[in-house]
């Protein structure tokens, strides 16, 4: 009998995790960021419950600063999956006009960290799927697949449960919740290969094209709409760029590239590599940042 390939094994494992989590929770939700990892996670959820639609809604914690192409795919992906799409915007951040240009790290804190907590509390979700992977960063290598959060969404690193075999202890007290990471054991290369193999729809921004850009702090940033504050007299430059990760457009660094197809992107990635999160401004602080963000409730 033919052996299972590594991508099939990863797929089977993720499906097992998705089903366990759904079977043992009362009100699950899938956090959907519209990025490539979310795309793979959503695809796996469709497979796990086929022919039923996944038995939970998608939740997008919106910052209002995502790329326009992400908003387009968001609506389409939910519709194709037959799933309800919930969009949450932190009203306080809306009122205060919090933005990445004037507010620095407060932007992430309020829109994402606070916004996520609000959304989870509002709907009473007791389990949330997230697309984080262990290979993204050194500090994530030890993360559990099922990660427990207190009533206040705090992550208590001293109180996490050992995970043996494929058995997950999902018991919790009222008010506590679980974050589940079905892609824990996938690497960036696995994600790309799987997208290629399964022909999964991703935001076109991952592929190179001529796009209007400016440079900020050594980073190439795309001018995605007219909210971008240009210097007096500054005119965006057309560059052939693509993105390795997608977040808020003013905070996401592009790479100059001519890779217009998925195989070409993978080729570039394999030949000239810098580790993935380098392009994201949020990670440029001290290395303990991630740990701190996690304790505050951000993924």
């Amino acid at each position: 009998m033919k052996k299972h390939t590594h991508l099939k094994q990863l797929e089977y494992e993720s499906i097992q995790i998705l089903r366990e989590a759904a079977a043992e929770s009362e009100n699950p939700v899938m956090l959907y960021s519209v990025g490539k990892d979310s795309a793979v996670m959503l695809h796996l959820a469709k497979k796990a419950f086929f022919p039923s639609p996944p038995p939970f809604p998608l939740l997008h914690v919106d910052t209002t600063w995502k790329f326009q192409e992400m908003y387009k795919l968001r609506e389409k992906a939910a519709k194709d999956a037959g799933m309800e799409l919930l969009v949450h915007k932190n009203q306080e951040a809306v009122d205060k006009g919090i933005n990445p240009f004037d507010h620095g790290s407060l932007h992430t804190d309020m829109w994402k960290t606070e916004g996520l907590k609000q959304a989870l509390d509002k709907h009473g979700f007791d389990l949330a799927f997230g697309g984080a992977r262990r290979d993204e960063e050194k500090s994530r290598a030890k993360e559990r697949i099922f990660s427990f959060r207190s009533k206040n969404h705090g992550w208590d690193p001293k109180n996490q449960r050992p995970e043996l075999w494929s058995l997950y202890n999902t018991r919790k007290n009222k008010g506590e919740s679980i974050r589940v990471f079905p892609l824990s054991n996938w690497t960036e290369l696995d994600i790309w290969q799987y997208i290629y193999m399964e022909n999964i729809e991703i935001v076109p921004l991952y592929l190179s094209e001529m796009r209007p850009t400016v440079e900020r702090d050594g980073m190439i940033v795309m001018v995605d709409d007219d909210r971008f504050p240009l210097e007096p007299g500054e005119v965006p430059v057309q560059r052939s760029i693509r993105f390795r990760t997608l977040g808020c457009y003013p905070l996401t660094g592009a790479v100059e590239s001519t890779a217009k197809t998925l195989p070409e992107v993978i080729q570039e990635m394999l030949l000239t590599t810098t580790s993935e999160r380098q392009g994201r401004a949020i990670d440029k602080d001290a290395s303990a940042t991630m740990e701190k963000k996690k304790q505050e409730g951000y993924f």
């Binding site: 590594h6 262990r134 290979d135 050194k138 500090s139 290598a141 030890k142 690193p157 001293k158 109180n159 996490q160 050992p162 995970e163 824990s184 054991n185 690497t187 290369l189 696995d190």
Partner: peptide, 30 residues
């Protein structure tokens, strides 16, 4: 990097590392 985390009292049962060759993907439990 585990040493520093241990000092902070963070429980680490296992850290997982990944690498791959042409023939196989490897998951290392450290």
């Amino acid at each position: 990097g585990l040493a520093a985390e241990r000092e902070q009292g963070i429980t680490i049962d296992v850290a997982y590392r990944f690498f791959a060759t042409e023939k196989r993907k490897f998951i290392v439990a450290d």
